[in-house]
């Protein structure tokens, strides 16, 4: 079983991103379970959502304490909240930011880091307003390219099935993110690789 946690702010589409990813994985024949952090959500406040994926039916019905992957829709949450709490060492973090993965050295000490400028992509494709871009489909395109957990084709099908409007723009945003995502390996792993070489 793989467990994911998504961090965003109310209005960015964090909970929908988790549902979209669940649908995409379901379309590939996986068992899925997607749920928000149970609480009272408000525009702008931190929002957390969860996703479990497995090949067998999922029995656990409790919050995810030790995720394998993080998807961060708003980089200002890093530092503002303990975003990596419980993330397994060697886990993967995908961040919506225009910075490079190497700009997050402290995260790279224990985790693999990837970055994507999902905000820029969302604005270019007219998703949400310029002050409140909806970045969820762009970041899912990056996740497809980066994680190896899901194909872009399934993300596209899930968008077609679940997104009520601007379907083509959302698909185009996800597709642009596929090629724009940047990745840096965890430093330890990197050092090990260097040593081996």
């Amino acid at each position: 079983m793989r467990e994911l946690r998504l961090h965003g702010r109310g209005g960015q589409g964090t909970v929908i991103a988790s549902k979209l990813l669940a649908v995409a994985l379901f379309l590939e024949g996986r068992e899925v379970q997607s749920f928000p952090m149970f609480g009272v959500e408000r525009r702008g406040s931190p929002v957390t959502a969860f996703l479990r994926v497995d090949d067998a039916p999922i029995k656990l019905r409790c919050e995810i304490q030790e995720p394998d992957n993080l998807i961060v829709l708003d980089p200002t949450l890093i530092g503002a909240t303990d975003i990596t709490a419980g993330l397994k060492p060697g886990g993967r973090i995908l961040i919506n930011t225009d910075q490079a993965p190497e700009d997050f050295p402290r995260l790279l000490e224990r985790f693999h880091v990837s970055t994507i400028d999902a905000t820029g992509i969302a604005i270019r494709h007219g998703l949400g307003g310029k002050s409140q871009p909806i970045v969820n489909t762009a970041i899912l395109g990056a996740f497809a390219a980066d994680s190896g957990t899901i194909t872009m084709a399934s993300v596209r099908d899930a968008i077609r099935e679940e997104v009520p409007m601007q379907i083509d723009a959302n698909i185009a945003a996800a597709a642009e993110a596929v090629t724009a995502v940047r990745h840096a390996a965890m430093r330890d792993a990197h050092l090990t690789e260097v040593a081996r070489a």
Binding site: K19, A22, F26, E31, V32, Q33, S34, F35, P36, F38, I58, R61
Partner: peptide, 11 residues
């Protein structure tokens, strides 16, 4: 169960 079923998406 509130949230554990009501807001949890599954097949």
């Amino acid at each position: 169960d509130g949230f554990y079923l009501s807001h949890t998406a599954e097949p």
